[in-house]
Write a protein that binds this DNA or RNA. Structure first.
Lengths: 101, 101
DNA sequence: TCATTATATAATAATTTACTTATATATAAA
DNA sequence: TTTATATATAAGTAAATTATTATATAATGA
């Protein structure tokens, strides 16, 4: 893997909040509103973290009404497969509001 | 792997210069003087990068006279094994001076 | 001993990153 | 329509990171 691409993916995951986002998504799709509760940071901060993960090709999203559900992309790089294996899934990230759709 | 520990190791490698240091060391021991040439940054900067890698348990060193040779530690964490596999070795990091010892 | 060389540490400056608040956009509902 | 809600983007600020220069330490050789 090329050094610059490697750096980009590693930088994307080298942050505790983004690790938690990934930990949540190991159980499946999660909507943004729930991430805000889990991380305890502002909604724009969550949005920016998600954008980083998306730009690194690690997550993708699906729009459901006004909500947006994020999930891990299906075909990860070998690097990310290894890293994701080391991330303990986090329960209790499921939608509590009506966004389960 | 615990999220905080994971973050620490990921942060240690999420930097282009440190990726290059690791790429050099894939071929074996390298002494600090050679890293300076390869990265094109100052000697103290190299020294600080090496310290971060050492503190994360990724590299270790051996003193040879006034020189110091750095190498990858033998037993890496499963996380690091996967990451190191993705780092392309970098040739031409061998000692050009008398520090081959 | 004194000068030289290799590396590490300290102090500080420059850059990057990650927040915050404010605002924009888009959908849904009244 | 108008209002409310979910998310994204913009702007600004705080915090963390990475560089530099200056200095310390430790080993070698004259």
């Amino acid at each position: 893997m090329e050094h610059l691409l490697l750096e980009k993916q590693l930088k994307a995951v080298a942050d505790l909040n983004r690790i938690k986002l990934l930990a949540c998504m190991k159980n499946g799709e999660v909507c943004v509103c729930d991430f805000v509760d889990v991380l305890g940071i502002s909604q724009p901060a969550v949005s920016q973290h998600l954008r980083k993960l998306k730009e690194a090709g690690i997550v993708t999203e699906r729009k459901v009404g006004t909500w947006k559900h994020y999930r891990l992309v299906e075909d990860q790089t070998p690097l990310m497969i290894g890293i994701l294996q080391q991330i303990q899934p986090m329960g209790s990230c499921q939608c509590k509001t009506s966004c389960t759709n």
